[in-house]
Simulated scan of single mutants.
Amino acid sequence: MSIYHHRVARAGHHVALAGAAALTATLALAAPAAAHAEVEADTPQALAENVTLSFVSEAESDSAGFTEMRVVLPEGIAPGDVTLGEAPKGWKLKATSDGYTVGGPALKTGVDAEHKIKVRQLPDAKEVAFKTVETYSDGEVSRWIELPSGGEEPEQPAPILTLKAAAPGATPLSPSPTASETPSPTPTPSVTESATTAAGAGTENTAAEEDEGSSAGVIIGGVVVALLVLGGGAWWLAKRRTASSHN
Rank of each mutant, 00 (worst) to 15 (best):
L107E: 01
A166S: 14
P88G: 04
T135P: 00
G99P: 07
V119S: 00
E140K: 10
L93A: 08
P74V: 05
E86S: 14
T178G: 13
V133N: 06
G139R: 07
T206K: 11
W144P: 01
T171E: 14
E86F: 08
I219K: 10
V82C: 06
E193W: 05
F130I: 01
A207R: 10
A201R: 12
E212G: 04
T196D: 13
G139M: 09
L147F: 13
K118E: 13
E153A: 11
V119W: 05
G80H: 06
A158V: 05
A179I: 14
T196L: 15
P177R: 00
G104T: 08
A165P: 02
N205A: 15
P175D: 09
T83G: 07
E210D: 15
A208M: 13
S215F: 12
K164T: 09
S215Q: 15
W144C: 00
R120D: 03
A195M: 14
G90W: 04
E193C: 08
L122H: 00
A87E: 06
P175R: 04
T206L: 13
S97P: 02
T182P: 03
A95L: 07
G99E: 06
P154L: 00
L173K: 11
P88R: 06
S142N: 15
T186V: 13
N205V: 15
G85W: 05
D112A: 14
V141Y: 04
P154M: 02
K89Q: 14
E75S: 13
Y100T: 00
Q156A: 14
